[in-house]
């Protein structure tokens, strides 16, 4: 009798716990969706305020120059180095495939086109997100945690105007230059490995590059980089501004700034790639003839 009652109770408890489990699951899902909507709204407002302050008042020279130095000058060596290696790696990976088809001399075209259209902008943006984006999020996060951002507000200095706008401008203005540097060093690296190590004819290498890589490819790459730079600055500053308290919070802000920026860079790359292709075919309906 007792064991029968126990079984009924257990069965009842099981049903109740299953019901509670479903309710908890729906609650968690609702909270998660609500969290996403709030975060999306929050970053939209943040972007809007940044742009409105950018229009309303340009930052002072003494706040802008350190940002330009940090973002541009200090990033140049690492972007140049990685750009060089990417160019050489492209040559290494493509050579065997092209050799089978006896198209080794077209290597210049494929390396240079990949670099100026895709790899240069994405590489420069990734380096910027890793080197500058994380640092910005950590710096602003520390300022949030130690009440320095509140101190700015209490002294009548708008933190968006004072902290975000110079960083946004720095990323926006300097990422095309970093992209050009990545493109240039990649082209040099690819040329060096292809012609000096693999022995491809120098004249044909450049002749093919010139025939297939157009100014539009370079323009498209630089256009993309502007969007990447804006996204990196806004995401990183937003993460810093909304940093959780403590060392763990600052660490999380830094890595989430990089991860979020990287994901957005790839998403933007995809969307902008399609848009620029459409624009290209609209302007030149006959399209490129590579092979």
């Amino acid at each position: 009798m007792a064991s029968g009652q126990g079984a009924i109770e257990r069965h009842g408890n099981h049903r109740r716990s299953l019901g509670h489990g479903i309710v908890d699951w729906v609650t968690d899902l609702g909270e998660m969706v609500l969290g996403w909507v709030i975060a999306l709204g929050d970053i939209t407002v943040f972007c809007g305020r940044t742009l409105s302050w950018l229009v309303a008042r340009l930052p002072r020279r003494e706040t802008l120059m350190p940002c330009l130095y940090q973002i541009g000058v200090l990033s140049l060596p690492v972007v140049a180095l990685t750009g060089t290696f990417i160019g050489m790696v492209l040559a290494v990976q493509s050579f065997s495939q092209f050799k089978v088809a006896h198209l080794e001399t077209r290597l210049g075209a494929v390396i240079n086109m990949s670099l100026v259209r895709e790899l240069g902008p994405v590489l420069a943006a990734t380096m910027l997100a890793g080197r500058v984006g994380s640092a910005m999020a950590a710096e602003l996060g520390t300022m949030r945690v130690t009440e320095q951002i509140d101190a700015l507000s209490s002294m009548g200095a708008n933190p968006i105007a004072y902290l975000v706008v110079p960083r946004f401008l720095g990323c926006l203005l300097l990422i095309p230059i970093l992209t050009l540097m990545a493109d240039f060093m990649g082209v040099v690296g690819g040329w060096f490995y292809s012609t000096q190590i693999l022995g491809i004819d120098n004249h044909h290498y450049w002749d093919n590059s010139q025939r297939f890589v157009s100014a539009f490819d370079l323009f498209g790459g630089l256009c993309k980089s502007l969007f990447f730079g804006a996204a990196i600055a806004l995401i990183s500053c937003h993460r810093g501004f909304h940093c959780d308290p403590g060392a763990e919070g600052v660490g999380r802000a830094a890595y989430s700034a990089f991860v979020n920026s990287f994901v957005v860079i790839l998403m933007l790359d995809f969307i902008l790639g399609i848009s620029l292709d459409k624009l290209y075919f609209l302007l030149w309906p006959q399209g490129p003839t590579f092979l």
């Binding site: 520390t142 300022m143 130690t146 009440e147 320095q148 509140d150 101190a151 209490s154 002294m155």
Partner: peptide
């Protein structure tokens, strides 16, 4: 004028 708990001086 606001004096913060940890002074909140700019590093």
């Amino acid at each position: 004028g606001f004096l913060f708990q940890q002074a909140a001086l700019f590093d």
